[in-house]
Amino acid sequence: MALFQLYLSIFFSFFKIGLFGFGGGYAMLPLIQQEVVYTHEWITVSEFTDIVAISQTTPGPISFNSATYIGYKAINNTGHGTLASIFGSAISTLAVSLPSFGIMTLVVTFFFKFKENRYVRAALFGIKPAVIGLIAAAGILLINRFNFIDYKSWLIFSVVFLASVKKIDPILLIALAGLAGFILY
């Protein structure tokens, strides 16, 4: 029964994330973090940061990656086995995709009417600047004592920030930061 309830709450959390996840990628992070770190405490904030790092270096959108990862962890951390955890992954990944499925199917059906609808346009006009704010919030939420343990963390942060603004490949930067961590700590 407890396991079934956990599956249910994983399903609803990720369904919500899929439904309100405007702006894709980083803009969805505050919502995911709120659900899985603060509301349900399925993973810690450092684990969450590690998932973002893994997403930046593996194929696929960040919301799928985190759904798959967290679905597994949420079950596994409560002492259930690998098979039950894999099933958790499947549920979270399905749940995060379902809203897109419903919405995009509607969009195809009413394609041109939809594009011209003035309410839809007005809604999108409001969402656009908010999405930029949500991405900044995603960054702010990850600045904490778990991710920034000393001055060396800030050194890595500054170097990677500047290199990334100069368009250096993010996968290379993560690899180098990992190497720096290995040497410094």
Partner: peptide, 10 residues
């Protein structure tokens, strides 16, 4: 080492 880099990339 990777965690602060992730934040910078965001």
């Amino acid at each position: 080492g990777i965690r602060p880099a992730v934040v910078a990339l965001i």
